[in-house]
């Protein structure tokens, strides 16, 4: 009976007014078609690179040596960031695996190799709902992320929330302001003509409000990631997404 009630709750939940929209829902039909066609979505190039890297022995051991086929990563990216001694983003997990288990050097943030590996891991969760990890340590991390999300910063003195909560759906110059749900990272951004991580996107926004961007891998960016993923909880992952 309890199981039935739970199942009913799961069915009923989406019917509640969920006015969250992925960037996918608000972008143009051409870009949507590009993302949905795996032979037109340039992000798939990084996924294919990642598949090759997954089985390449780095420091004597490949990812596949421990994890087996990359398909075993199904669902993993939907949980990140997690807590393992410290808050850990997917990029940091990959680099920790490299240093502690593979005996390899960590990959630089935004390097093509790290983007390819995160892309192929996250791609395994495409279509799965974002399921924030239940570790109690993450509560404080998300609270810190939310505080940063609502904190005004930079010469323009703007908080993330002022655009992405208060004014989402309106326009900033010619561009539609999305709600800022990280549903498809790493994404292929047409403006970048390449792949980028969520942290690149966040730093990009900080530059736009003329704030000094947090460093890659900093506690602030991981906290923001943790808050944003919880905020997007239940929305399907799209990796590799295409965004204008």
């Amino acid at each position: 009976m309890r199981r039935l009630a739970l199942a009913l709750a799961l069915v009923v939940l989406p019917a509640e007014a969920d006015d969250r929209r992925s960037g996918f829902d608000v972008m143009g039909p051409d870009t949507q078609a590009m993302q949905q066609d795996d032979t037109a979505n340039p992000g798939i190039l990084w996924v294919r690179d990642g598949e090759a890297l997954w089985t390449r022995a780095d420091g004597g051991k490949s990812c596949a040596a421990c994890h087996g086929a990359v398909e075993s990563m199904r669902g993993a990216a939907a949980r990140y960031p997690v807590f393992d001694g410290a808050p850990l983003s997917l990029e940091q997990r990959i680099n920790r695996c490299r240093t502690t288990h593979q005996g390899a050097t960590p990959l630089a943030y935004e390097s093509q190799e790290l983007l390819a590996l995160t892309a192929v891991v996250a791609h395994q969760s495409r279509g799965l709902p974002i399921t924030p990890d239940a570790d109690p340590h993450l509560g404080a991390v998300r609270a810190e992320g939310e505080r940063l999300f609502r904190q005004r910063q930079g010469q323009l003195d703007l908080a993330c929330s002022q655009c992405h909560d208060d004014n989402a759906g309106k326009r900033l110059a010619g561009n539609l302001i999305p709600q800022g749900h990280p549903t498809g990272y790493p994404v292929y951004r047409l403006e970048w003509q390449g792949m980028g991580s969520l942290q690149r996107r966040l730093r990009n926004c900080q530059g736009a409000v003329r704030a000094e961007p947090y460093a890659y891998g900093s506690a602030e960016l991981v906290a923001l990631e943790a808050y944003l993923m919880a905020r997007a909880g239940g929305m399907p992952l799209e990796t590799p997404a295409v965004r204008p």
């Binding site: 066609d37 795996d38 032979t39 037109a40 798939i44 190039l45 294919r48 690179d49």
Partner: peptide, 8 residues
Amino acid sequence: MPRTLINV
């Protein structure tokens, strides 16, 4: 070595 996606 470039990577390609081809749809035929």
